[in-house]
Design a protein around this nucleic acid. Structure first.
Lengths: 290, 290
DNA sequence: CCGTATTACGCTAGCCGTAATGATG
DNA sequence: CATCATTACGGCTAGCGTAATACGG
């Protein structure tokens, strides 16, 4: 068995080419590195270096060893990452979502159902990365916008969301009952960057030059109030924040402008979150009754 | 970074369940293990054990950690194996073959073409394992009985071999020009275990009870001389060792009883073995001219 | 001479074992 | 009291840094 401190030093040499540079990077002295490299060769029982003229370089075996050493160190780092992540997952709940609205709705529910747990949330555009995060205990609960086929996931159908465009009452579009993305091609539209997968949807339907993307939510609010530019909205958002005087919201009828959300956890966590999923179902019934 | 000696001790505990057993297995003392497990928790910054009633067991995080630790240790062992194998491959040539006859032919050629190198040979029934061995530098040259499609292999068509059955002149089969495996069903046949993939062929065509398999080649030779039992032979073997007085050899005409050999190396080694492959082609031309 | 690697030497951190203590059934 | 884990103590290995040496462009 080769200790990792030797591999770390060896990989540093392989990367930086000379003992001096590597020793500086690792904040150890050159003689220490020199000694370690000898020790590594000794413990492996194979020559790894080509030595000539006070110049040290990897030989063919050394190159093979450097590759393998990186893998071994990566496995070690994996261990640390996985353990810390899992340990954290026992005390904290991280909600990963493809879209911000479900987060708003779920956060109070999670806080109520999982008292004493720290709750953090994260937007992530790609369903695949959300699922991978769930498996690696980066997330405990995720919200997807497509039903996943994966067998190790327990999924509960959640709310729908329909995208609207909100315009001033005197806007050319204001009279319409419905619009398509195509209708929006001639306008510049305000939006925020923090809308999860909806960003991918809008970018696939509208050219970037049409979109005035604000990274700050505050800035977006100010611009909406101060300008008469159209901006994206959704039935859910309108419902929860109420109508804005002097503006009308028109539904976008493209199929891409409507999504069904799914709340998922690992099947191995299903029992643990049973009452939470019950509460989610309950909230949907109450929500529809409003 | 977690040092591997800690992981080794941790995995031993995970396997054997108590510090005592693990300490005995590792030939270290119990207090040492106890201290190491604390150190591991400390360095990871996570609790790994459930401690109660002077009983130590893994908690959920510990189970995750044990799995990852095994992977990390496996990666470390991989490093050692790969490096030693590669280093060895620079000084020695290991020939892996699916069949013994090509080995007999190739060994003198290899010794002539690669002077100063240590030469070892190994029979291996499965082509897939020969190819894997080539890739991991366990072998440098292999002989297959089917053309492999793998792109990282350089392959050279080699000799054919045809299996015969050798019987006494007064044997019922002696009069035949050709036989099939089916004809052999009623006889007990002498053979050796060291015939590579031919063993798989015979076992697929004849019941094991028909085969008198000798592990020692000497024993087989003695039995052939002392008994009148049929035994397997091949055109190549007959050619090189000459006819045995009082015996006749009859070809087995099933397609399975004929093989074409392929000599292969890694394409990355192709240049290194160029003259060797030339010599192999040369030997085949001379061989056919005889 | 400056930059490189190796060798020599002394320090000390940390790993180990022994012995003692605690806890449990 | 037998078994298992933890704590306490002292020895010693081995990894470290400093300083000196060697070698080349």
């Amino acid at each position: 068995m080769i200790e990792n401190y030797l591999l770390e030093q060896f990989v540093a040499f392989a990367r930086f080419g000379t003992l001096r540079k590597a020793s500086e990077e690792l904040h150890i002295t050159q003689p220490t590195l020199s000694r370690s490299m000898k020790k590594l060769e000794d413990e492996l029982g194979a020559s790894l270096f080509h030595r000539e003229n006070s110049k040290l370089s990897l030989n063919e075996t050394g190159k093979v060893a450097a590759e393998c050493a990186e893998k071994a160190l990566a496995a070690n780092q994996d261990l640390i990452d996985h353990v810390l992540r899992f340990d954290r997952s026992l005390r904290t709940i991280t909600l990963g979502s493809c879209s911000p609205y479900p987060v708003n709705e779920l956060v109070p529910l999670l806080q109520e159902q999982l008292p004493g747990k720290t709750l953090t949330t994260e937007l992530n555009n790609e369903d695949a990365r959300l699922i991978a995060g769930l498996r690696s205990h980066l997330y405990q609960i995720i919200v997807l916008h497509e039903y996943p086929e994966e067998k190790d996931l327990f999924c509960q159908r959640y709310i729908d969301e329909q995208i609207y465009i909100t315009v001033p009452e005197d806007h050319p579009l204001a009279a319409k009952d419905a619009v398509t993305f195509e209708d929006l091609l001639e306008y510049r539209i305000l939006m925020t960057a923090h809308i999860g997968f909806w960003m991918d949807v809008t970018l696939s339907k509208l050219p970037p030059s049409n979109l005035l993307i604000q990274s700050s939510l505050d800035a977006l609010g100010d611009l909406i109030a101060a300008s008469s530019l159209p901006f994206f909205n959704s039935d859910r958002m309108i419902h929860s924040s109420g109508d804005i005087p002097g503006r009308v919201s028109i539904p976008i009828v493209d199929p891409e402008a409507k999504a069904t959300y799914w709340v998922c956890c690992l099947t191995s966590d299903q029992q643990r979150f049973r009452s939470l999923f019950n509460a989610i179902r309950g909230s949907m019934i109450r929500g529809s009754g409003k």
